[in-house]
Simulated assay, not measured.
Amino acid sequence: MVQYALPSLDLSFAALADATRRGVIEQLGRADASISSLADRFQMTLTGMKKHIAVLERAGLVVTEKVGRVRTCRLERGALAAEADWIAAHRRLFEARFDALDRIILELKQEEDDGPASD
C-alpha cells in the first residue's frame, strides 16, 4: 500500500479531529494548565481529560510534566509545524488548480461573447 502522508500527520490530524482536543490546544496556547483544571474547564471527568491528553501526547502536540501530585500540560514547541507545511503545500496546489480553472472559464466566456466566426 502506498503511503501518502507521514504517520505523525495521521496522529496529529486524528487528535485534532475532536472538538475537545482542539479546545485543549487552544487553552494551552494561552497558558500551561493542569489536567484537573482542564477537566474543570471542559466540564468532564479527570479520567476523560487524561484520555484526551494521552491522545495529544501520542501525536506530539502536548507534553506533560508531573511535579508532586500535579500533572501540568503544555504545548510542544514546534508542534503543528509539519502539519502547517502539509496544509500550505496542498493549499498552493488547490489554488493553482482553481486559477487554471478560472482561466479556462474566462476563455470559454470570451469565445461565447465573440460568437461564431464568420467566413
Rank of each mutant, 00 (worst) to 15 (best):
M1W: 07
Y4F: 12
A5Y: 12
L6F: 08
D10E: 14
L11Y: 13
S12Q: 14
A14V: 15
A14R: 15
A17P: 06
A19M: 03
T20N: 00
R21L: 14
G23K: 02
V24A: 02
V24L: 01
I25S: 05
E26G: 14
Q27I: 11
L28K: 06
L28E: 02
G29K: 04
S34P: 12
S34E: 08
I35H: 00
I35W: 00
S36M: 07
S37V: 15
A39R: 04
R41P: 00
F42S: 03
F42C: 04
M44A: 03
L46V: 09
T47A: 08
G48E: 07
K50D: 04
K51H: 06
I53H: 03
V55W: 09
A59I: 07
L61S: 05
V62G: 12
V63M: 04
V63Y: 01
T64P: 01
E65Y: 01
K66G: 00
K66W: 00
V70Y: 00
V70N: 00
V70G: 01
R71I: 06
T72Y: 04
R77I: 08
R77N: 04
G78M: 09
A79L: 07
L80V: 14
A81W: 04
A82N: 14
A82Y: 11
D85E: 13
D85L: 14
I87A: 06
A89T: 13
R91F: 02
L93D: 05
E95L: 11
R97K: 13
R97L: 04
F98H: 12
L101A: 07
L101P: 02
D102A: 12
D102P: 07
D102W: 06
R103E: 09
I104M: 09
E107M: 12
K109D: 07
Q110G: 11
Q110F: 07
E111A: 15
